[in-house]
């Protein structure tokens, strides 16, 4: 099974209310060194078999047509997910 990761971020000039709210909370918890927070979205797309160049191209197309809205968001990464050491699946 292959997995593609797509990262989508709000455009720099677009207000990011979630990031702003998190940025407001961090100092209250003692994390005073972070001057700004921007929150984006990460999609993990799974396919049967290997992630081929065609799969990556399809993932990019999906990222640009559905997963993001180019008016307000940028697709910042479309990449093969690295093998994870240990399972990320919940254990029964």
């Amino acid at each position: 099974m292959g997995r593609v990761v797509v990262d989508v971020m709000p455009k720099p000039e677009i207000l990011d209310p979630q990031g702003k709210a998190v940025a407001g909370a961090l100092p209250r918890l003692g994390f005073a060194q972070f001057t700004s927070v921007r929150q984006g979205k990460r999609f993990e797309l799974e396919v049967d078999g290997e992630v081929t160049p065609e799969v990556l191209a399809a993932a990019l197309a999906a990222a640009e047509t559905v997963l993001s809205n180019p008016v307000i968001e940028d697709v910042v990464r479309v990449a093969v997910a690295p093998e994870v050491v240990g399972s990320t699946e919940p254990t029964a």
């Binding site: 207000l15 209310p17 702003k20 709210a21 008016v71």
Partner: peptide, 17 residues
Amino acid sequence: LCEAHLLPGSMIKNDQL
């Protein structure tokens, strides 16, 4: 309508959140 590209632009969260 904006997502369907029948109208331009988009809506985001209200500025005062």
